[in-house]
């Protein structure tokens, strides 16, 4: 009888704290969290994080309130005397329910993650043969941009524009951008924060990630895999601009870097860092 009482009180504490907290998290805090709504992928991660934060607050509060309640309710009121508690050694039904509930949560999180991942790749690097390819906005073609990482800078090649290689990146609005991330030396990682794109750059590997732009946007690019001495300085920024502006920008790049392009190797998906066929 006493036990029922404790459990009911715990439950009341739990519901009283968790329901408002979860509502605040899900409805107020999470939707406004970074990285914002600049691209479809960024919006997706904000939505996913809202779901996860909701689940997290429900679980977190359950354990936290349980601990706080137990520590208060079951504290030894007279520590100078050693009294023994009840010799309870387990409860098969509680254990069974615990397994069922945690299994349910786990399967939900995995299923949710898998579905969301397969919908549009979530902006993560998918290797040379992507399985989750988002469909481009009606009437547009995907734009390929190759991201070439090397110690310690990113450059970008636009195969659709003669393979021009630029030190900065601009992409048009309302376009599906297909990033081909590769490296010339060590492992880097291309993290375009506001686009919510992250793909490791491995030497000799073509790692594909997608971002579907919406309106104009400024975004930061950072290397997020330790790549040596100046890793901390390996960042630049880019812009999502309207199509007309993009066209004039890329034309400018072609004029500016056209001469340099002739001395570059031909466009390829994989570059190897060292000369072939050593002795």
């Amino acid at each position: 009888m006493k036990e029922v009482n404790h459990f009911r009180r715990f439950l009341l504490w739990y519901l009283a704290t968790t329901i408002p907290l979860t509502l605040i998290v899900v409805l107020v805090l999470a939707p406004g969290m970074p990285p914002g709504n600049g691209t479809v992928q960024a919006s997706a991660v904000v939505a996913d994080n809202t779901v996860f934060l909701g689940v997290a607050s429900v679980i977190f509060m359950a354990v936290l309130v349980y601990f706080v309640y137990s520590l208060i309710a079951f504290r030894e009121r007279n520590p100078s005397v050693v009294t023994e508690g009840p010799a309870i050694r387990g409860h098969p039904q509680i254990q069974l329910w615990w397994i069922v509930v945690t299994m349910g949560i786990v399967l939900f999180l995995t299923a949710y993650g898998t579905i969301r991942l397969l919908e549009g790749g979530s902006g993560g690097g998918q290797g040379p043969n992507p399985i989750a390819v988002p469909s481009p906005p009606a009437g547009t073609k995907p734009l390929q941009v190759q991201v070439i990482a090397q110690q310690w800078q990113f450059t970008y090649r636009y195969p659709a524009y003669g393979g021009v290689e630029t030190p900065s990146i601009e992409i048009p609005t309302n376009t599906l951008v297909e990033f081909h991330v590769t490296s010339l030396d060590v492992i880097h990682s291309f993290w375009a924060y506001q686009l919510n794109v992250k793909a490791d750059a491995n030497p000799g590997v073509d790692n594909i990630a997608y971002a579907q732009t919406k309106g104009p946007l400024f975004f930061n690019v950072r290397c997020s895999e330790l790549c040596g001495l100046w890793h901390g300085y390996m960042f630049n920024s880019g812009r999502v601009v309207p199509r007309a502006q993009f066209a004039s920008w890329i034309a400018l790049q072609q004029r500016q870097f056209g001469a340099a392009r002739r001395s570059l190797p031909p466009y390829t998906r994989q570059y190897f860092p060292t000369p072939l066929r050593r002795g």
């Binding site: 996913d48 993560g124 895999e225």
Partner: peptide, 13 residues
């Protein structure tokens, strides 16, 4: 947030 790929894109590394 790290084990679920969609949110890992943001938090990884």
């Amino acid at each position: 947030f790290l084990s679920d790929v969609p949110s890992d894109v943001l938090t990884h590394g």
